[in-house]
């Protein structure tokens, strides 16, 4: 258990809802759910969720902290916004799902091998480096996420697509060498650092 997780468990005892309200992006909306289930039915990835959004909201209220935070479910969200559009209570469900995932990640109890989480990490590292996504490096990194031989296999599979992109000028082969950074990337780093500090302070995380 991470240090932060221990702190949070101690701080909120058995009131998981309060913990979510205080620490999760848009978490204060969770209490507004009326369990109609339209979000769960509207999600295009619905069948793959172990716990659909409305059930997660109920689990939050029921104090099922461990089950929720270690769940793979909210990592399934692809931000299609179907649920938000349809929710009769106007809950920002997409944001709450991401918020929960993010919180679990921060606490260090998110499922380690969850592909979305791993991709997100990869993406984040990629983008903050130069303030702009290096698509070639991101794809390669993605292919090789599960080891070298898997990477080669996936790379070959995607070769025709890559070549096509190259041909139409949608992929810069020199990206492999770096470059493509935006001007003042270091300023972006400073801004991100500051933002992180502010957020940590706001949410009371030990930084």
């Amino acid at each position: 258990m991470s240090e932060l997780n221990k702190v949070m468990v101690e701080k909120y005892r058995n009131d998981f809802l309060k913990e979510v309200e205080a620490n999760v992006e848009e978490g204060n909306w969770v209490k507004m759910c009326m369990q109609c289930g339209v979000c769960s039915g509207s999600c295009p990835f619905g069948p793959y969720w172990e716990h659909p959004p409305q059930e997660i909201f109920m689990m939050v209220r029921a104090g099922k902290r461990e089950e929720v935070l270690t769940s793979e479910s909210m990592w399934m969200c692809t931000s299609c916004y179907n649920c938000i559009v349809r929710c009769p209570r106007e809950l920002p469900i997409t944001h709450i799902m991401h918020g929960l995932a993010n919180y679990a990640h921060r606490l260090g109890i998110a499922p380690k091998m969850n592909p979305t989480r791993r991709f997100a990490k990869l993406f984040w590292q990629n983008i903050i480096k130069g303030g702009r996504v290096n698509e070639l490096k991101l794809s390669i990194g993605l292919y090789f996420m599960d080891g070298f031989s898997n990477g080669v296999k996936k790379g070959l599979e995607m070769l025709p697509v890559g070549l096509g992109l190259l041909k139409t000028g949608r992929l810069n082969p020199f990206g492999l060498l770096g470059g493509g950074k935006c001007k003042g990337a270091s300023d972006i780093h400073k801004m991100l650092k500051k933002a992180q500090e502010i957020e940590n302070r706001r949410k009371g995380f030990a930084s």
Binding site: Q35, C36, G37, S40, G41, G46, E55, R86
Partner: peptide
């Protein structure tokens, strides 16, 4: 069925309507 139906599709052939959603009493799609 305790559920707000998410959406409806139509079977072109039969014109039957197909209701999609989740029964929230215990989570059944």
């Amino acid at each position: 069925v305790k559920s707000k139906v998410a959406n409806i599709t139509e079977d072109r052939e039969s014109s039957d309507v197909i209701l999609h959603g989740v029964d929230t009493e215990g989570y059944h799609r």
